[in-house]
């Protein structure tokens, strides 16, 4: 069920075909991604995990239309990422929350509607602030909030425009462990039914949030393993079935990047 009680926006599958990204700023080409083929199932949450610097954020930015692929294509529901962005069917959460310091929580959430060129809807904004657990904090500025509260506000801003595709770039990377556990447990319900893609370096987080985890190789990123996590929500970090998936994801990561220290928490 979507946060405001209305049915979730219909999800789209995301299709990456022979996707390649090469950075070439200083005449010294650096391959970042690919060639990579992947399908992100409609209405499901997919996590991308991989060693740091492997190009997973670049992949996410290409899906968001923020970077242009060097070769290959991304199709979302029959269109390009740019088509989806132009009709504001996309919402992205950033590691630093990206809240504007001069706007209140309410103003930041409402900005999600304004940027999406939707009519103002104060009632919906209030409902979302309530839903992410920030009731009573609508007038606060981001600087007055804790890191976890800021991420909640950022998620509310994403969801207020009822996106068809939700992109999360290490959204809880900068919050403390306890808060992170709580967010991992509480927040996924809010976007259930929406196609969501999550980038994280935490194996536990990937298993907690995702229906499917794609393990990436070191740069340039390709997919080396796909592990399904068909467990009911809310999930429990100490559940043995989840623990088993975590071990499998961590094992795939180890084979993908041997010799690297893993953030398996």
């Amino acid at each position: 069920m979507a946060p405001d009680g209305a049915p979730a926006a219909p999800g789209h599958a995301v299709l990456c075909t022979d996707l390649v990204k090469v950075f070439d700023a200083s005449g010294d080409p650096v391959p970042a991604v690919g060639p990579l083929n992947a399908t992100f199932a409609a209405g499901r949450t997919t996590a991308l995990v991989g060693p740091s610097g492997c190009g997973k954020s670049t992949l996410l930015r290409m899906i968001a239309g923020l970077e242009r692929p060097s070769a290959g294509a991304i199709r979302i529901g029959g269109g390009t990422p740019h088509d989806l962005a132009r009709r504001a069917g996309l919402a992205m959460a950033f590691q630093d929350a990206a809240l504007l310091p001069w706007r209140s929580v309410r103003g930041n959430v409402a900005l999600g509607l304004r940027l999406a060129r939707r009519p103002a809807d104060p009632a919906r904004v209030e409902r979302l602030i309530e839903t992410v657990g920030l009731g009573g904090f609508g007038d606060r500025r981001p600087a007055e909030l804790s890191g976890g509260m800021r991420q909640r506000a950022a998620i509310a801003r994403c969801l207020v425009s009822a996106p068809e595709l939700l992109l999360l770039d290490e959204p809880f990377g900068a919050v403390d462990e306890l808060t992170r556990r709580r967010l991992n447990r509480d927040l996924p319900a809010l976007w259930q039914g929406t196609t969501a893609i999550l980038v994280t370096h935490s194996v536990v987080e990937a298993a907690m949030l995702a229906d499917r985890v794609l393990v990436l190789s070191p740069r340039p990123a390709t997919i080396v393993a796909a592990i399904d996590v068909p467990l009911p929500r809310p999930r429990d970090e100490d559940d043995s079935a989840l623990r088993e998936r975590i071990a499998r994801i961590a094992g795939a990561l180890r084979t993908s990047a041997p010799g690297r220290a893993l953030a398996a928490q």
Binding site: A64, G65, L66, A88, L90, M92, F94, A98, L115
Partner: peptide
Amino acid sequence: VPRSWLDLVESYGR
């Protein structure tokens, strides 16, 4: 301006 603020606007196709 942090990069992510600009990305935020761009991700809405603006």
